[in-house]
Design a protein around this nucleic acid. Structure first.
Length: 386
DNA sequence: TCTGGGGTCCTAGGACCC
DNA sequence: TCTGGGGTCCTAGGACCC
């Protein structure tokens, strides 16, 4: 019965961006701190080394990370900075330094990989780890779960040694449960969630805690009187299918039982590469034509650079535009031949732009290249056909 | 002055082919 | 001439995640 039992860990860095900044500014430890907003304009440099507060910020942007002290004041990631400033005017604010976060990210992943090599990347601050090979000798027995606790503990120590940062780990028979488990005792938590624990530990949680049930689905479940994962597990699958469609409904019901057989994927080819930017102030298609055109060209150059650096070419060129009322439209065009040339991308995206209404002011412009293939493979097939 | 930037996956309709 | 399926590609939008 237990022959197929898996041991999956989810490793989640605690308040990652903010914690990296605290390595640089240890004197800020214990104070509410949020990361977000744009890089400070040069003239502010005159203010010296004083860290600005949310009160002093004006402009667009959202919080990307809040320390636990800041969360206690009611602010959280994704919240607009202006709103956050009203809730916590004295919280400190630092702009994001992605180069440094990426450096720390590499360090933490290398530290884990040295102990357990089967790692699935889930972005800059979290990974899944298949502990199967590491635990294998006693798989299925209770001592095996005791062994996973030891392994998870050594992963936490290795990450702290490599980076000075703490992480929370959940270990479970699958990715769904491991992800939920890692969140149960943050920060620096270590939570084992076994199949037998599902009724007591999973079912009381809100349905929203299932990764994949977001704001919309969560609200619709609430409207059906389904608040907890347990209620979702006990619901009639036909009711869920009726409201969410065959596929989504069945998935929700399975997830609520704690069932998930997705494998840990150590590598995936990217599907698309994109760049987008939100303007400081909304731009007008005609009045700000020159400025828009410069930004547009720059986005194409950056996407082309990303393609080049990563060795891909793409056949579908896409444009994204967000109006001042936050409505977003996209257009795309598939070319005969894959490209990574900035001018070709600019030309195709320019065609897309002609198919979009330009009667409102614009707050965001984005360029995407999809239908990717490896650059060398494509060039090889090209030379064969020529 | 509400609402960043980089992604994935799903759906659904139309074109087109067999 | 009418009816009908299946499969694939393309496009647009939306939900969701980190």
């Amino acid at each position: 019965m237990h022959a197929d039992a898996r041991f999956i860990a989810h490793v989640d860095m605690d308040a990652f961006y903010a914690s990296v900044e605290l390595l640089r500014y240890p004197e800020l430890r214990g104070r509410p701190l949020v990361i977000g907003g744009r890089r400070r304009p040069a003239r502010d440099a005159a203010a010296g080394t004083t860290i600005p507060t949310l009160r002093q910020y004006s402009g667009r942007g959202v919080i990307t990370t809040a320390t636990y002290e800041a969360r206690a004041l009611g602010v959280h990631s994704g919240m607009g900075l202006m709103k956050a400033a009203r809730l916590a005017p004295d919280a400190l604010l630092l702009p994001a330094d992605f180069d440094e976060y990426r450096r720390c990210s590499r360090l933490f992943k290398e530290a884990v990989r040295a102990l357990a090599p089967n790692i699935e990347d889930r972005g800059i601050d979290e990974i899944f780890v298949d502990l199967g090979d590491v635990v294998a000798p006693l798989a299925g027995d209770d001592p095996a779960w005791a062994r996973t606790r030891e392994i998870a503990g050594s992963i936490q120590r290795a990450v702290r040694e490599a980076t000075g940062l703490s992480c929370s780990i959940g270990v479970a028979p699958n990715k769904l449960l491991a992800k939920i488990a890692s969140d149960l005792q943050k920060p620096a938590g270590l939570t084992i969630l076994r199949e037998a624990d599902i009724p007591v530990r999973l079912w009381p949680l809100p349905a929203r805690r299932i990764t994949g049930i977001g704001p919309k689905a969560g609200a619709r479940l609430e409207a059906l009187g389904l608040h907890t994962i347990g209620q979702l597990a006990q619901a009639d699958p036909l009711l869920l299918i009726e409201h969410f469609g065959e596929r989504h409904g069945v998935w929700m019901h399975e997830a609520a039982q704690g069932r998930d057989d997705r494998p840990v994927l150590t590598f995936r080819e990217p599907k698309s590469i994109s760049r987008e930017t939100t303007f400081e102030t909304d731009l007008h298609a005609v009045r700000d034509r020159d400025q828009l055109s410069r930004i547009f060209t720059d986005l194409c150059l950056r996407v082309a650079g990303d393609l080049e650096r990563n060795g891909y070419v793409g056949r579908t060129i896409g444009l994204k535009l967000r109006y001042d009322n936050f409505k977003t439209v996209t257009r795309d065009q598939t070319l005969d031949q894959a490209t990574r040339d900035a001018r070709a991308i600019r030309r195709a995206a320019g065609e897309c732009l002609k198919r979009v209404p330009l009667d409102r002011r614009i707050r965001l412009l984005g360029v995407r290249v999809g239908a990717l293939s490896k650059a060398d493979a494509s060039l090889a097939s090209h030379s064969r056909t020529v």
